[in-house]
């Protein structure tokens, strides 16, 4: 009789996703401790991890890392299934879709900073739509759009620069920088 225990053997890819997601979750939790003047305006430091994973390991892994971060981060912060969770989930999905398109821009001209800013705009766009349709059914939410747009540019630029630098440092490090089946 064969033993009936099912053994799940994590592949190297699984371990990598878990490692990156853990880093992203740490950043999410750390960021939650920063007092912010306006709900919804936050740096989104965890997206640095998403950008790095996107550039080094492709879109599919970036999706895994970003969504795991949204779910686990909200569980840790007690936000799971609260309005804030749906806002971050919609923002994450929209920015992942935009990242999927933006990564095909010419590499010579557009780097992580472009990806980061475009994703940040997708993020606020989706959040505003969800907030307008569901949380604040009034056009008043769009009154805050300039604030969110400014945050998207500033934090998108900051995160993108950090990601670009990290990618450079990692590229020189021990891990191989290739393994991109899509490209």
């Amino acid at each position: 009789m064969t033993p009936s225990t099912i053994e799940l053997v994590p592949a190297a890819e699984d371990r990598r996703i878990a490692r990156h997601a853990a880093a992203a979750i740490v950043l999410t939790v750390a960021e939650a401790a920063i007092p912010l003047p306006l709900p919804g305006v936050k740096p989104g430091l965890a997206n640095i991890v998403t950008l790095v994973v996107l550039a080094r390991w492709g879109w599919r892994e970036a999706v895994w890392v970003a969504l795991l971060r949204v779910f686990a981060g909200s569980l840790l912060l007690g936000q799971f299934l609260a309005p804030g969770f749906f806002l971050s989930l919609s923002g994450a999905i929209a920015s992942l879709l935009v990242l999927g398109l933006a990564m095909h821009l010419p590499q010579r001209w557009f780097g992580p900073v472009s990806h980061s800013i475009l994703a940040a705009f997708a993020h606020i766009g989706a959040q505003l739509v969800v907030a307008r349709l569901w949380l604040v059914p009034h056009d008043g939410v769009f009154y805050l759009m300039p604030v969110f747009a400014a945050a998207a540019v500033v934090f998108g630029l900051g995160n993108g620069l950090v990601a670009a630098r990290l990618l450079h440092e990692l590229g020189r490090g021990s891990e191989p920088a290739e393994k991109n089946p899509e490209r």
Binding site: S114, I117, A164
Partner: peptide, 27 residues
């Protein structure tokens, strides 16, 4: 830090800033 900007990135930053200005004027 400017070293990490590619030419198109600057364009994206400027476009983003324009969206800010436009939305502030519109809203």
């Amino acid at each position: 830090w400017r070293h990490w900007l590619r030419p198109g990135d600057s364009v994206v930053v400027v476009l983003g800033a324009l969206v800010c200005v436009w939305s502030a004027l519109a809203m």
